[in-house]
Amino acid sequence: MSDAASAQATRATIGDSEFDRDSTVTRREPGVYDIDLSAGWTIFNAVNGGFLLAVAARALSDALPHDDPFSITAHYLTASTPGPAVVRTEVVRTGRTLSTGQASIYQQDADGNEVERIRVIASYGDLDALPDDVRTSAVPPAFPPLEQCFGPDDSPEPLPGASAITDRLFMKLDPATLGWALGAPSGKGEVRGYFGLADGRDADPFSLLLTVDALPPTAFDLGLTGWVPTVELTAHIRCRPAPGPLRVSITTRNLAGGFLEEDAEVWDTAGRLVAQSRQLARARLA
């Protein structure tokens, strides 16, 4: 049985999956939420930035009158670690079709001082209420068939950056963007692949926030290795995705002064552009 078929056979459902359990916050009081950040979503011992974005987004979905993130921007202030965290939210504005709020995730340092990890501002609405007209020049990236792509399980050795989060993802990368894994990066700054959760859970607006920050960094295709920490990330959720594996394309056009941008597009099985993002990340040049 193929990886995709296996995932289908043991499919988890939206609302009842490891991602949902681990990213769900518990309301302590209005505007204040508790969560224990799982070590299962770490990269180099730091909690993945896309997963943190989903955590903050869930808190804002509870705090605001609208459920779905439309636009969400996060500044990553300090690295988050597995363990207890607090999310504090603030309602900035509410309207008929859009509401805006901000959220911060805090943890305690070794001395017991509260440290802000990530600060988010976001606009929320109702994706199901949007009109279905589409006028776009965007086209899905060309992908080889899924069975001709490769993931972490196909590598004889752990891929650079492989960590706990890898076991929770279904990821098959386009061989044309995998030269870095063989010691021959293309230098183009491109990574493309099929993406989903390993338990077969279909994508929703919250998991799309993980998706835009879950593929190997484009810095690998530029010949760099090691952790590529996100400084700022903005994601736009355009519509609710259709079931099935997503296609994700990430590109970098400019590495300068030790920083690079990553532009991501996420396409669903219906051929729709369901999410877009841009992030600024720090590249370790030495």
Rank of each mutant, 00 (worst) to 15 (best):
F70P: 00
G226Y: 10
Y194T: 07
S137F: 11
G95C: 02
G101S: 07
S155I: 04
F19C: 05
D67E: 13
L98A: 10
V248C: 02
I237S: 03
L222K: 14
S155M: 14
L173H: 04
F51D: 07
Y33V: 11
V120R: 01
A142E: 15
D34H: 14
P185C: 08
F259P: 00
V228R: 01
A235M: 01
L246N: 04
D167R: 11
T251D: 10
T78P: 00
T251E: 11
L178P: 02
R93L: 04
P175G: 02
L260V: 05
P175L: 01
G95D: 05
L173Q: 13
L98W: 00
I35N: 02
G244E: 03
I14C: 03
S104M: 05
D167S: 13
R135H: 14
A181G: 01
R117I: 15
A7W: 02
T211E: 02
L208P: 04
Q107Y: 09
G151L: 06
R58D: 09
F19I: 07
P217V: 03
A138W: 10
T26A: 13
R58Y: 04
N254T: 14
S38P: 06
A59G: 03
L260P: 01
G200V: 02
L233F: 08
I43P: 04
V115I: 15
F206W: 13
A242L: 02
Q8Y: 07
S186N: 03
V87W: 05
P205Q: 01
P65S: 10
P65I: 09
T42W: 06
P152G: 05
T166C: 03
F143W: 13
D16F: 11
S186A: 13
R28W: 00
P185W: 08
V139M: 13
N45C: 04
A264I: 13
C149D: 02
L224E: 10
R168K: 15
A203V: 03
P152M: 01
P216C: 06
D111H: 13
S207I: 05
D221H: 06
R119G: 09
S249G: 10
P217M: 02
A264D: 02
P245Q: 08
A12K: 10
S249R: 14
T218W: 08
V86C: 09
C149S: 11
N113K: 11
G226W: 11
A283K: 00
E18G: 15
A110N: 12
T10N: 15
T225K: 15
I118P: 00
P229F: 12
Y106G: 00
A54Q: 10
P152D: 10
S207N: 04
